[in-house]
């Protein structure tokens, strides 16, 4: 579903990704682990098309199409979703309104009918409840005044509503207490399906206790230095990244 080959990318002229090869088939959840500064978040931004992240080499194919040629919204319409590490605040923009506009934009592109306010509310209320959120959150401005946990839940809510084909979760566990983590993980697990791929970017093994990955990749200094099964995460937890770093 997602195929990354020889991907190199630079930020402000400095190479951060130094040749990444990675394939995530539909139905699988892959985890990317690595210490701070290894390029994890950069990978997420490059895949979702953020400005300022310059791809210098390599290709990314998503559902058979060249992902890198697309604008950010085209990637979203194609079914790619990035749950931000630091969700952005949009003062004055109502959360429900934002989400409906995003959903309708995607539905429109897929040739589906747009939802009116009533239909949308019906859809979204169920999802809100499942995520242990209150309806009141829909009335507030997007992420404005949200706690860290609320922001992360809001990201998962968007994911649940937009139903993307592929989800990238960028450090979704950071800043969450154990209860919030469980709720978020439940939300993510509910979206696991044979048609959907996921890439879970995390610093710690903790999240992977709740979202058990099919594969774990270790990113160090812009390269994947090791790949393995779920056990790899445990091993890292035990030994830390130091050994790998020394080996690299």
């Amino acid at each position: 579903m997602l195929k990354i080959e020889g991907l190199r990318a630079a930020v402000e002229g400095k190479e951060v990704l130094k040749g990444i090869d990675l394939e995530v088939p539909a139905g699988e959840v892959h985890a990317i682990m690595g210490p701070n500064g290894s390029g994890k978040s950069t990978l997420g931004y490059v895949l979702s098309g953020r400005e300022g992240y310059e791809v210098t080499d390599g290709t990314v194919t998503f559902r058979g199409e060249d992902l890198l040629a697309k604008e950010p919204e085209e990637r979203a319409i194609a079914g790619l979703f990035l749950a931000f590490q630091y969700p952005v605040e949009l003062p004055g923009v109502g959360n429900a309104n934002f989400l409906r506009q995003a959903l309708n934009s995607i539905r429109r592109a897929r040739g589906e009918s747009e939802l009116d306010a009533m239909q949308f509310l019906k859809l979204v209320r169920g999802k809100v409840k499942a995520l242990g959120m209150s309806d009141e959150m829909l009335k507030r401005y997007v992420n404005v005044g949200f706690s860290g946990g609320e922001k992360k839940r809001n990201e998962i809510l968007q994911m649940a509503v937009l139903e993307p084909a592929f989800c990238i979760l960028d450090e979704t566990d950071s800043g969450l207490d154990i209860d919030a983590l469980r709720i978020v993980a439940d939300g993510v697990n509910a979206l696991r399906s044979p048609e959907r791929g996921m890439l879970v970017i995390t610093h710690y093994q903790r999240l992977l206790e709740y979202i058990v990955p099919d594969r774990v990749h270790v990113l160090l200094d812009g390269r994947i230095v090791r790949s393995g099964g779920p056990d790899l995460a445990l091993e890292l937890e035990e030994k830390g990244y130091g050994e790998l770093q020394a080996a690299a």
Binding site: E73, A76, I77, V88, P91, G92, V93, F98, Y141
Partner: peptide, 25 residues
């Protein structure tokens, strides 16, 4: 803000309209 909106499927123009309306709310 623009990138966030676009990564959720809004065109840049829609994103600007949304943000400006928020600004003027």
């Amino acid at each position: 803000q623009l990138f966030y909106c676009r990564s959720r499927g809004l065109t840049e123009e829609e994103a600007v309209g949304l943000i400006v309306n928020g600004f003027a709310r």
